[in-house]
């Protein structure tokens, strides 16, 4: 368990650099970083920043796959730098900021669009009737919890946006996997009655109908949230809504 994990290896990193104050366009810079076999890419970047080049900019915090800060493209795939291990790569490893987002600097992407979209889908409980603290908890059985729990695991790392071809093609008009999944998480919650309000945002052309079910979002999700399945469930529910509205308008949704 110990020996090979600590053996040293020299890792070649090719890192996208972009300084908006001096560069007209991004460029790549090559670094040779002494790593241990057990290291993740984030460890290599931290070594690099401490010992080789303090000017490299990237985001990170928890180093345990839960804060969602260190999403980046590693050899063209969206990954958490704390969940991609140097031992799993051979040759030069190319590190870039997340695809489909503007670059703020080096490996730091501009997250404004994502933050706006999260807010748009009203990702909070909208109960039919507010409860007072004295009334105690809403009863929710383990089975009811299971209906939405998976969709509540999203760490907002934005990897699914970097993987989603539609988000790229629509120049980020598409609300996108994580935000729609979050809306779905609240829609599926037995305590919630806000689906109609959320549908106005997500059952639109910029919403779920922009999705062509490529499934890349679920492939890259580091938390197995499976946004693709959430989006398909939203599509089915929206279709049912549409039929009810147009052919059976007397039936309450």
């Amino acid at each position: 368990m110990t020996g090979d994990r600590l053996s040293a290896l020299q890792v070649e990193l090719e890192i996208l650099r972009y300084n908006p104050e001096t560069d007209t366009e991004p460029r790549f810079q090559r670094y040779s970083v002494p790593c241990k076999n057990e290291w993740c890419i984030l460890d290599a970047l931290n070594y690099l920043k401490d010992h080789l080049d303090p000017t490299l900019a990237f985001r990170w915090s928890c180093h345990m796959q839960v804060c969602g800060s260190c999403g980046m493209m590693i050899n063209g795939e969206p990954k958490l730098a704390c969940k991609a291990f140097v031992r799993d790569y051979t040759g030069v490893i190319r590190v870039e900021p997340l695809a489909h987002f503007p670059i703020e600097r080096d490996l730091v992407s501009v997250a404004d669009d994502f933050m706006d979209k999260l807010k748009r889908v009203k990702p909070y409980l909208i109960p039919a009737k507010k409860r007072s603290i004295e009334e105690g908890e809403y009863r929710q059985t383990p089975a009811q919890l299971t209906r939405y729990r998976k969709y509540s695991m999203c760490i907002n790392c934005m990897l699914c946006y970097a993987a989603c071809p539609e988000y790229g093609l629509t120049k980020s008009k598409f609300i996108g996997p994580a935000a729609i999944t979050l809306a779905h998480r609240y829609n599926q919650d037995s305590r919630d009655d806000g689906r109609d309000e959320r549908q106005e945002e997500i059952a639109t052309n910029e919403g779920v109908w922009e999705c062509t079910f490529v499934g890349a979002c679920s492939d890259v999700c580091p938390k197995h949230v499976d946004p693709a399945s959430a989006l398909q469930q939203v599509k089915i529910a929206s279709t049912v809504d549409w039929y009810l509205e147009h052919f059976m308008s007397w039936v309450k949704k």
């Binding site: 105690g136 908890e137 383990p142 919890l145």
Partner: peptide, 16 residues
């Protein structure tokens, strides 16, 4: 309890 009312997915007993 307030967090529960705001949607926190606390683990549950069989009775909810």
């Amino acid at each position: 309890m307030q967090l529960e009312h705001w949607g926190c997915p606390w683990n549950r007993e069989v009775d909810g």
